[in-house]
Design a binder for these strands. Structure first.
Lengths: 186, 186, 186, 186
DNA sequence: TTTT
DNA sequence: TTTT
């Protein structure tokens, strides 16, 4: 029990897409979201305004994944606290690849929806909000946004949560990496 | 100027190797280190103690890189505050690859050496640390640990630092991705 | 269940004194420590080096309080993650007073001892730490440092921990404010 | 230059009142705001839902203070990153008192407005939004919200900012503590 | 590859 | 009151 070291990530940004929800054989939910953070500055040489957006891959597990699936949408602004985790996987050519994600799981992380009642995903990294009369980025619980058909395990999660390994169902699956959205560069 | 969103990483861990120092054409220093954080827990099924170590790739720029090169060594314990950044590069087969790093640069991050030489502990009657052999993982400034021969730009760093683009020398180089150590899996 | 908003404090510093340990009627441990963080800078006008130390009052509850009592001592370096909490109390003149503390409790916080016994530094040829006298600010578990005689509840703690109210024994006591050390200015 | 230790506070919450803006003799702006964070949980004994709100006093300096004065209003949701600082002052009876604040200053902190375009301060700790047709908690820059007549220095700020003492105008004034709002308990 |  |  316990952990040695600190591994903490804090993000505030907007979702680039609706969450993708999957369920593990154990029944536990997993939500994958991508979050944009950006910085803007005036270029010292050209004098023009510039902006750079960083995209973060976030994986939420358990209860917080269910909440994400119900309430978060493309453009939603969120606060994320989680841990860095790098997964190894094999691409179609059998080559080893690595993907780094922010994992929100158990007591090791948290997710907070921000800006309740705000209208739209015009922010930062969020393009137009497909769909006509949609008012906000959350509100009433809805049908899961991007529920997947396949129920295989999305990510191997063999680490415990900090301070409370016992209460947290461990994921023990080692499935191939899922398909990612093509419009976000990873 | 300014930034929209929050992108922050906080790590406390130990270096897996001596820092690798490089210099950009501009003369700015870059230090690459890998930091281990770990968690241990008792397996619910087998009852045995388990441990998982996460390795983090950290890139420090400028003054903080020089300090890292002088004082940090394999095994050194550090506090790191930086930002997540994912770089795209091409592997030898021309395939796109992505690497995520924690970037410490300008006012957007900080590095603190931990546990060095503080051994005092007067509350317990611990003796002063005077004595011959080197005590900790740092002490006197030294020769750079792992200075590289090649001086080309190691990472593209086109983003500004938060709130202070002007004071921070921007790296404007777009060099090919540097060779990474082959013995570190990312 | 759940929380709205984020309330997080991160400290790395050294203890100004041995921890003070108390026990609540429920048997739960409470540790009070003070942590120093400091900044130094060169005065723009006089050109001289200046330093300012900030002292933080930290209250730890439960298991983490027991660990603090066993292993931490005056001078120990620690990483603290907790929440800000302001308590109201009456001074001897019946005047309302407020004290702000960093509370570490349940899954809402963590404490990490830093720099202990890690002295390895194989990268520099540093020798092993074997040797007689106590080396650092912690080592073997010991007798509680500053155990108090009075066992009444030290602080009212009516807030739940984030995300896990059920697993964490709540302190339900509303005792008069404890006597604070007179030699610490808050 | 530099700092020893880490002193960091991260808050996400809503303003309890409009910001109070003051200007120092040097012309630098200071904004004082109070931020609510809250937690709710189900009482284990009574089974009823309970909630506890924590109020945080935040002082912003310089440019970020001006932005706060222009855009933040009672009910606004913000992300705050700053440092803990405890000030000593004398009450009307000549007694020493201490007030702990979160200080956002220079490169040592940041403020992010959240939920752009959202309508109203109904959140958490924010009562009704006085004033008829007001749409959001920010939008167009406006007249400073609660500009003070007196221009004396609000808080002594003798500490430097981390890593950049030179660029930051130091406040050198030691004025009496300002009056606080009576409707927020400190 | 670190550390305990 | 700590630490460097």
């Amino acid at each position: 029990m316990a952990s040695r070291g600190v591994n903490k990530v804090i993000l505030v940004g907007n979702l680039g897409n609706d969450p993708e929800i999957r369920y593990m054989p154990s029944g536990g939910a997993v939500a994958n979201i991508t979050i944009a953070t950006s910085e803007s500055w005036r270029d010292k040489n050209t004098g023009e305004q510039r902006e750079k957006t960083e995209w973060h891959r976030v994986a939420l597990f358990g209860k917080v994944a269910e909440v994400a699936g119900e309430y978060l949408r493309k453009g939603s602004q969120v606060y994320i606290e989680g841990q860095l985790q790098t997964r190894k996987w094999q691409d179609q050519n059998g080559q080893e690849r690595y993907t780094t994600e922010v994992v929100v799981q158990g007591f090791n992380g948290t997710m907070q929806m921000l800006g309740g009642r705000q209208g739209g995903g015009q922010g930062m990294g969020a393009p137009s909000q497909g769909g006509g009369q949609q008012q906000g980025n959350w509100g009433q619980p809805q049908q899961p946004a991007a529920q997947q058909q396949n129920n295989f395990a999305p990510q191997q999660q063999s680490a415990p949560q900090q301070q409370a390994p016992a209460q947290q169902p461990q994921q023990q699956y080692n499935e191939p990496p899922m398909d990612f959205d093509d419009d976000i560069p990873f």
